[in-house]
Structures are given as structure tokens and as C-alpha cells.
Design a protein around this nucleic acid. Structure first.
Lengths: 362, 362
DNA sequence: AATTAGCACTCAGAGAACGAGAGTGCTAGT
DNA sequence: ACTAGCACTCTCGTTCTCTGAGTGCTAATT
């Protein structure tokens, strides 16, 4: 069933007003802000019909109307104008994004923080789990008791571990270990590292001291954590300034849910983002009980096969969907662009420039 | 002025009761739980005197008494019995601590979470800034456009960076770079890496393509972040279950303060932990305005020269100081022990065992 | 037929009034 | 030195009332 143009306008007006005030919206208010030249009585009739359609709700008989989840859904799908960010906003995003791109491990944190401070909602930033393999091992001999294992993964991240031995060992062993690992442990996923394979490697190296086991264990650990995906939640305290969370119990419920970020690791596979790279989950559309009264907006970023993930915010169903989606879309696009350019990854030029900067500072 | 034994007992009783109920404590309650065989009237008189001494406070005339910060201070300094942890508790701590000790970078996070879940207060975990130097460089040639820089720091942590070039370069350059960096950039702190030194290194290597700059910049970055110290706050949502933070504004104030963990980076130098490795800051003793109504308990861990830091919790002044200090003390001691044993660092034996485990699983 | 003005009705929320109960300080008695 | 008793204080929860925003409906208007 298609809504009349007028009903659409009224629904939009109700949502717009409710988003800023968090108070039920009356017919009079709609008449004023809605830019329709109608009396409040006419609007009352229309609003009654919208309520009958389940797009609006009435907290109690003599109160104004509040958008229902279904109403928000319609708004998000059809009515919402795709907002453009102001120059100041894009500027701010760009600046924050380019600044800290260097440390990739800190990136998720920073992006989350950015999203949160931009939208004033708690944000979540997560990387999708992707099966990784080691594409190359190097083992650095430090002293007879110490060596460093370096593993270069196929997603171009580098991991290392310092190994200290309670006995000494000759340097030749190192090169044997490196050779064996490079031939037998590269290009395979974590589950392929079987005890059989480890045994074979031990024989191949003539290792009687468990060195192969140590390196294999490090490899397994590296691959699992690399695959694991990670979730960070930032800015949870923003919730407390929202009227819907003035009830400390409500706030507590959601915040404890958010603080266990394991919950969100399960998110990416389940959610299909469809054509657009953004998805809005309104109130009861969320599977988690704790989120049934809140909305989640997530945008996907996609930096080649190496790195994918989501960036999103959590807020009350009364949310500035237009603004939030615009901001998240922009951040995600930036992230894809920045990380995706595999040829000039985390900043060769930038690093060089940074070197120069330092040169001038001193 | 020395308090009579009886007054001490009464003060202790008031604090003990207030800690669990968060309600002003009346003379009758003290008479019951205080184990003194006195009538409430006598206790009333004593409590009046304690109030006059500023150790107790009265929210209003016809209410019971509440400990003042001064009262807590006295309690913490003299009255509090040093609590022993139960076997279950130490077990739990030990288990959680040994489990995840492997990934040193995740450690702070996990320890913070542990402290928080144990005490039910928000926790903060931070590492002290310590000047670091590189003790050894290695550069791994991957392909003509790619190499990996590995830096072993004097605190035995290893850092690396994958560098991708927009042009190709011969392998010989790599060894020259490694040699120069190992001779000229080891054992020096970040501020010694001057443009002059970089220029000299560039000439020494015959580097015209800025490779030295890239590596130098990486070194600087590594050293500064290694020095920088880090702070993580976990479990902030615990605040919301406390009666003193039922007022959302109060909760919001403290939580936003906590969520900006920069604040705590400044903490360690300022605070002198005295003889004992634990410190309690009660209410107004805190410098930060936002903490004037809360207490902070911090314990220091010290793992040799390589790693020092603090682990602490934030809570209302009404806090189970005895239990919290005991737990933090235990965690900090465990941390010192675990990290401090530089000879068997992040788990050689454990890793080996882990390898075996995996062997059996498959 | 669509819109509007008018009106009676509903109901949440703010404020006043009130009583109960916990706790106090003081006095007089043990 | 301690305690029993008592008058007094003050918060907190309850009840009650009143106000006002907002509604739905009807009758009038365009």
C-alpha cells in the first residue's frame, strides 16, 4: 500500500521533531514545522490513520505521537533524504583519518573513537575474520639463547615473537628451521598445522629440543588471532546523555552488553548489507534482546581481500539516521580507500614526509 | 590525637555497614553489628564525638552517620584489617593471568578486565613510560619492492614494519642499511635521532631514495610509542549498578572522564606509592575534579627495568578497601612475577606445552 | 468532499499535604 | 559510666488534586 504524499510529509515531520526533542509530537507541532498549510485538525485525522497503519504510536491516549519501528523503517527506506556532509565535517573526518593511519593496530580504536565523537553515540569498529596464511618466515639469530621469529602473512601484516631458550643452540639450527618452515608451513591455514606436520618438521630439522613446537605454536597463535576479527566499542558514555537512558537500569543493561564486545564478532556473517554498503537495524529488528529498544547502523568497509570490516554506531531508535548514515558512509569509504590502495599501503610517502617533518623540527 | 579503642571499633562498624548498604548508619545498627556490648545511647554519644572530630558526617539531622573522607582515611591507614583472599579468588586470578599471558599487547586489556570483574568496579591498567632504545635492527628482503624492518628493543619487545616501495631496489642496499642502522641507531633514545644523524646515514649507505628516512621514522615512531605508556579503562559499566551513580548526570560525568584515558597517563609520575606498592586516594584527595567524590586504588607492578605500570580501580568512596587492595596487590604481584622473570619470558615452557596440547587435540 | 473550528474528554505529571518511621540529642535514673 | 525514655526533627513514600497538552468527534464552512 502506498502512502499519500501528505501522509509521508506528516510522518517525516513527526520523525524529524521527535528526533530532536524525544517528546511525543502533537498535531499542532506538526502543523507548525511540517510546512503543510493545514490545520491541526486535519493533521490529527491523518495522524490517526498513520497510527492505525502502525507507523506511529501513542504512549497514552492524551499524548502526541511517537514513530514506531515500522515508521522509522519506512522513513529510512523511502523518505529520508540522503544528507550531504558539510565541508567542516568531511574535513574533520579526513584529518582524523589521515593522522593516525600509520599504526594499523591502533587504527580500529581511532576510527571507533572518531565515529563516536562525530555522532555522539557509542560506536563499534570491527574487522571481519579472514582466513590467513603465512607467506614467509624469517628467523633472526640474536644470541645462543635467543632468536626472533618473523612471519609475514598473506594479508601483508607482519608478526613476530622473541624466543628465549633455557639452553643454547648453534646458529646453523636457525637456518634449518627457517628453511623447513618456509617450505612446509607457508600458504597453509591454521587448521592444517597438524601434529603430524610438526613431527615431520622436527625430524627434518633434527630438532630434539622442541624448537619446532615453539615456532609452530607461535604460527598457530598468529594465524588464529589474525583470523579472529576484532571488535572495539568506544564512547559508550555518550548513552548517558540521552533521555532514553536516564533510567540507570536501562543504561546499565545496554552498556554491559556493549562492554562485552564478543557479541559483535558474530555480527558480520549474519548481516547481509545488500547493495548499499550500509545497513540500519531498527529496534526489534535486532536479534539481541538488549538491543530491541535501540538501533544499530553499520557500514562496511572493504579494503581488498586483505581487510574487511564494519564500522557502526548504537543509539536509541530515535536517531538521526540521515546524518549518521552519511557520516558512517563517508568514514567507511575513506577507510576502504586508505587501506585498499595496496600498492602504497600504510604510508610510504607519508612516512617519508614524516621523516622530513622531523628533520625540520629538530 | 589517638582515638579510644571503642571509638575505633565504632568507626569501623559504621564503615563496614555503610560499605554494604550505602545507607546512613544509625546507632542501633552499630550496636547490633559492632559486637560491642553497649546500648545505642552510649554509641550515639560516641558517634556524636566522632562527628565532631570530622570522621563521620550526617546527611541531615535525623539521619544516621556516613563516614567522611577523613574517616575512610583513618580506616585505611590504621583500622583496616589486611584481608586474605580466599583460595577460590586466588585461583581465579591465577588462571586468568596465566591463560592470556602470551600476547603481551593484549595483556593490559585482559588484566584490566580481570581487575574489573573481580572488584566490580571500573579498572584502569597502565604501563609507565620508560625510555627505550633499539638494541638491534634486522632488515628482511622480501622482493625488490618490499622489505621488513625488525627492531629489537632493549626492553625485549620486538617491533616491525613492512615497507613497500614504489620503485625497486637491489638486495645489497638492504645489508648496507642494516649495517648502518645497527651501528648508528642502536642504544640511542628517540631524541638522539637527529636530521644530522639521518643525513650521515644516508651518505653512508649511498641512499638517494629516502629509505633511511623511512626506517628512521619507523624507529622514532616505535621508540615513542614504546615510551609512551598506555592506559586502558575497562568495565566502566559497573558504575551504573552502584547506588551513588543512579543519578545519570553523575554517572555521565565520571564515565566520560574515564573514557578519555589520556588523563591517567599523567598519573604515575605524580603519585608516590611510598613503601607499600599500593595507594589509596580517597574522594577529595584526588586532584581531578571529576574524582572528588570517588576513590581510586592503585597498585604498582614492577617487572624489572623493562616494564612498570599501575593497575587500579575507580569506585565510590564507599568501597571495600580491604578487599580491593588485597585483590589488586595480588594481581600486581602476579604481574611482577610473571613479567619480571626475564629469563623465562612470555612463556617458553608454556608455549611448548601448548604445542603438545594442540598435538593431542588433533 | 475536504477542511476547519469548537468542544468535551482523557490522562501524565507536577505539586501540596500528610503520616509513618528512623534516628537524633538530651535528661534523668540506675 | 552507662542506659532507658522521650520529645523532636526530618526524609521518604503515599495520596490527592489540579493543570494543561493533546485527542477524537461533531458540526460548520469552503
Amino acid at each position: 500500500m502506498e502512502l499519500s504524499e501528505r501522509k509521508k510529509k506528516i510522518l517525516t515531520a513527526v520523525i524529524d521533531a521527535y528526533v530532536v526533542t524525544a517528546e511525543p509530537v502533537g498535531s499542532k507541532t506538526v502543523a507548525e514545522v511540517g510546512k503543510l498549510d493545514l490545520s491541526s485538525a486535519t493533521i490529527r485525522n491523518e495522524m490517526a490513520e498513520l497510527t492505525a497503519l502502525g507507523l506511529l504510536e501513542q504512549p497514552h491516549t492524551s499524548a502526541g505521537r511517537v514513530p514506531s519501528p515500522k515508521g522509522y523503517r519506512l522513513y529510512v527506506n523511502e523518505l529520508m533524504v540522503r544528507q550531504r556532509l558539510s565541508l567542516e565535517e568531511t574535513d574533520e573526518i579526513n584529518k582524523s583519518m589521515y593522522r593516525k593511519i600509520q599504526q594499523l593496530d591502533k587504527l580500529m580504536n581511532d576510527i571507533g573513537r572518531l565515529a563516536s565523537s562525530l555522532t555522539h553515540y557509542p560506536s563499534l569498529a570491527l574487522t571481519a575474520p579472514i582466513a590467513a596464511t603465512v607467506s614467509r618466515f624469517d628467523i633472526i639469530y640474536v644470541d645462543p639463547n635467543t632468536f626472533i621469529v618473523v612471519a609475514l602473512l598473506d594479508n601483508r601484516s607482519v608478526h613476530n615473537k622473541l624466543v628465549t631458550l633455557p639452553f643454547s643452540m648453534e646458529a646453523a639450527m636457525i637456518s634449518r628451521l627457517a628453511a623447513v618452515f618456509n617450505s612446509d608451513f607457508t600458504g597453509i591455514t591454521e587448521d592444517k598445522i597438524t601434529p603430524a606436520r610438526i613431527d615431520a618438521a622436527e625430524r627434518a630439522c633434527g630438532d630434539t629440543m622442541g624448537l619446532v613446537s615453539v615456532i609452530a605454536a607461535f604460527t598457530i597463535e598468529t594465524l588464529t588471532t589474525a583470523c579472529h576479527g576484532e571488535a572495539v566499542v568506544s564512547g559508550a558514555s555518550h548513552l548517558l546523555s540521552l533521555p532514553e537512558f536516564r533510567d540507570p537500569d536501562k543504561a546499565h543493561e545496554l552498556m554491559s552488553y556493549l562492554s562485552d564486545n564478543e557479541h559483535f564478532l558474530k555480527l558480520p556473517p549474519g548481516t547481509d548489507l545488500g547493495d548499499d554498503d550500509i545497513q540500519v537495524l531498527i529496534g526489534p529488528e535486532n536479534v539481541a534482546e538488549e538491543l530491541k529498544n535501540s538501533s544499530v547502523v553499520i557500514a562496511r568497509y572493504n579494503a581488498g581481500d586483505n581487510m574487511r570490516g564494519l564500522i557502526g554506531v548504537v543509539g536509541p531508535t530515535r536517531m538521526d539516521y540521515s546524518g549518521v548514515t552519511a557520516k558512517l558512509r563517508y568514514i567507511a569509504a575513506g577507510l576502504s580507500r586508505l587501506l585498499g590502495s595496496a600498492e602504497a599501503p600504510p604510508g610510504f610517502e607519508k612516512l617519508q614526509i614524516k621523516g622530513d617533518d622531523i628533520g625540520e623540527q629538530h
